[in-house]
Design a protein around this nucleic acid. Structure first.
Lengths: 252, 252
DNA sequence: CTGTTTATCGTCAGGCAGACGACTATGATC
DNA sequence: GATCATAGTCGTCTGCCTGACGATAAACAG
C-alpha cells in the first residue's frame, strides 16, 4: 500500500563523511576536490547518494571504502588491519543547502590511523589530508583555484561538528585508540590526545592514567623504539569502551 | 540545474519525536495511537513528514507544537513559559523500517517540564504520557488492542536511544533543568535526576554539588513549601550549559 | 507538644589529578 | 667510550572532590 507520492515532497538522501586522522602531530580530515558544479574545483567532504536498498550505515561504509580503502568494523569485534571507527554524526537538511534540489545529508564520522597516502578512488578527482584548521579557518580567504576557499556546501559546519564530537568523545571513551595502529605505545596515544585537543599533556600523569584504567590498554609484550629514546612498551586496545573516570581535557 | 531525477532514489523524510518528561517520579515519554495502517491501533512516537520548504529543526518544532503546545526555544535565550529543550537525536534509514516505502526519519529529542495534560492535537487520535519502561518492556507482550504491544516501526529503538541520550547528557550539562518549571527547588531537581537515572541520590551531597557548581543555579529569593516539610529555596537555571566537573551517576 | 517530612550545613576519610623530581634505556655526537 | 639528547617509567606530595553520614532547621499533622 504505497503512499500517494504527491502527499509529501521527495528528497535525495546522501551520506557525507568526516574522516579524521592524526598526521605529523595535527588532526587532519579527508577532503576531495569537486569536479562538477556547484562548487566545482572547491574542496568538500567525501560522500554520495544512498542507494535504494542500502542502510545509512552501509552507505557510509561503502563511501569510506571507496575513498580510502578502509573497512568499517563492528566495535564489538577485534579490529581487522585496515579498519576504521565509523559512527553516525548528525543530519543536515536545510532547504537551501544544495542549490540544485532538496538534499538531506546524513553525516558520519570516521576515525582512522595514519595512512600511507590517500588513494583517489571512485569518482573523486583528487583527495588529500588537510589539517582541520586549514579547512575551517578559510572563511573569506578565497583563492581562484579553490585551494584556500571555504569548503563546499555546509561542509565546514559538518566538519566542525565532527571535530567537536571527536574531541569530546575521546574524553570518556577509548576511541582515541582508533587513531592508532593495532599496536602502539603510550607516547603515541598521548600524541593523539595532544593533536586532537591541541594541548600538551604531562607524559607522567598521562602514563599513570591510561595504564591505570582497567581494560583500556593491554600490553602485548613487545617494545619499540620507533620514536627514539628509551624503548617503549607496546599495547593493544583493551575491551573497555567507556572510560570511568574519564580523561580530563585541560582548561582551554 | 536540477539533477536527473532518475539518477538517485527518492526518499520520504520524516521527523519523529522522543518527548520526555518526569511525572510522579517516573521518566515518561509521549506516545500517540496510530489511526492508520500500518501498525493501526498501536502506539508510536509523534512525528510527520518534513515539508518542502522546512528545515529539519523547524519540522521538529512544528510537530512538537502540534502535539503538545510546547515551543522549542533557543538555548541561548531565557526560556519562555511554555518552552521545551529540542535537539536532534539520530537518523534512522533502514530500507525496511516502513513497509510502504523508503522513509528516512530524523529523530529529535525534546525535554519538557511536567505538563497538566497532553492535549490531542493535529491528526493524533489519542495521546498519552507513558513511563518509558512500560513502552520499552513490551516485546512479546502483545495485546489485541495494542495497549501493551511494542511500539510501531522501529520506535522502540528510537525511544531507547533518546532515553540513553537524556541519561548521559544530564551528567555533564545543565539539561536536567529542562525537566523543571521555570522556578524549582534543589529537591525537585534531585527528583529529576533520580527519575531519569532510576537511582536514589543523597540529598545532602546533591545539594552541595548543584549549589556549588558556578552558573548552574541562580537563587530567585523566593521559597516554597509545595513538597511539604521545611520551605525550600527557589532557583532558576543559570547561564552555564556544561557542568565541569560533571554530576556523577552512581554505579549500576 | 511530638512526631514526620524535607531542607540545609558540617565533618571526615578515601581517591584521583596536577605539579614535578628522579631514574632508565636507547641513539647520536664528540 | 664518554657525553648528550630524547623518551619512557616510577614515585611523591598536595589539593580538590566525592561518598558516607551526623546534626540542625522549619514547616505540617495529629
Amino acid at each position: 500500500m504505497p503512499y500517494d507520492p504527491s502527499a509529501f515532497p521527495a528528497f535525495a538522501v546522501t551520506v557525507d563523511l568526516v574522516v579524521l586522522t592524526v598526521r605529523r602531530h595535527a588532526l587532519c580530515a579527508l577532503a576531495v576536490r569537486r569536479g562538477e558544479p556547484p562548487f566545482k574545483g572547491r574542496w568538500a567532504l567525501p560522500g554520495g547518494f544512498v542507494r535504494a536498498d542500502e542502510d545509512l550505515a552501509m552507505a557510509a561504509a561503502r563511501e569510506l571504502a571507496e575513498e580510502t580503502g578502509l573497512l568499517a568494523h563492528d566495535p564489538a569485534l577485534p579490529a581487522p588491519p585496515n579498519a576504521a571507527h565509523l559512527e553516525q554524526l548528525a543530519t543536515y537538511g536545510d532547504p537551501k543547502r544544495d542549490p540544485r534540489m532538496r538534499v538531506v545529508s546524513v553525516a558520519h564520522l570516521a576515525l582512522a590511523p595514519d595512512l600511507p597516502a590517500p588513494r583517489p578512488g571512485g569518482d573523486a578527482h583528487s583527495v588529500r589530508w588537510a589539517p582541520v584548521e586549514t579547512l575551517l579557518d578559510q572563511e573569506g580567504a578565497f583563492g581562484r583555484d579553490g585551494e584556500s576557499a571555504p569548503l563546499a556546501f555546509d561542509h565546514a559546519r559538518i566538519l566542525a561538528d565532527g571535530v567537536e564530537r571527536a574531541r569530546s568523545k575521546i574524553e570518556y571513551s577509548s576511541l582515541a585508540t582508533a587513531f592508532c595502529p593495532q599496536e602502539f605505545t603510550v607516547g603515541e596515544l598521548r600524541r593523539v590526545y595532544e593533536a586532537v585537543w591541541g594541548v600538551a599533556l604531562d607524559p607522567r600523569n598521562f602514563h599513570r592514567k591510561v595504564t591505570g584504567t582497567p581494560g583500556f590498554l593491554v600490553p602485548t609484550g613487545g617494545t619499540t623504539t620507533r620514536q627514539g629514546g628509551r624503548p617503549a612498551q607496546l599495547f593493544r586496545a583493551g575491551g573497555a569502551t567507556l572510560l570511568n573516570p574519564p580523561m580530563l581535557r585541560p582548561e582551554v
